[in-house]
Design a binder for these strands. Structure first.
Length: 120
DNA sequence: CTGATGACAGTCC
DNA sequence: AGGACTGCCATCA
């Protein structure tokens, strides 16, 4: 029977779980979430799940791009909402970019600390 | 089946 | 700092 469907649902579950595991006031990159979900390199899967997500309790706003910028289009409705939600959690958001997160791939140390606090 | 798309990421220049 | 290119893979036309 369809083992594929089960796998897909399982992947989604893990991704959702990883997102829910992001502490309030903290953020994570798509790749980071994917890795935490046991799906390294599947950042796009995370994006796919978020796009199809219906759970209002899901802290989707804590998921940003690897460069610390909001993933959605600037003219998109979700862009503004994500900005406001992040600010509501005490984060500084300037021009669609969260202050305190690496803006360039030259220093990856910051993100790890900002996100989960510490590796496994 | 092929090709394009996408709430992405990493590397190279 | 920013653009071009590649990798990944589910979904759609």
């Amino acid at each position: 029977m369809n083992g594929k469907t089960d796998v897909k649902r399982d992947n989604e579950s893990r991704i959702l779980a990883a997102i829910r595991a992001i502490p309030r006031g903290q953020i994570a990159g798509y790749g980071e979430v994917a890795r935490r979900a046991g799906l390294p390199g599947r950042a796009r899967l995370v994006a796919r799940v978020l796009r199809g997500n219906t759970d209002p309790a899901l802290p989707w706003h804590r998921v940003l791009r690897s460069d610390g910028r909001i993933a959605m289009a600037v003219d998109s409705p979700g862009y503004l909402e994500q900005t406001q939600r992040l600010r509501a959690e005490g984060l500084m958001v300037v021009d669609g970019r969260v202050k305190g997160v690496r803006a360039s791939p030259s220093r990856e140390d910051v993100l790890d600390e900002q996100v989960w606090g510490m590796p496994d």
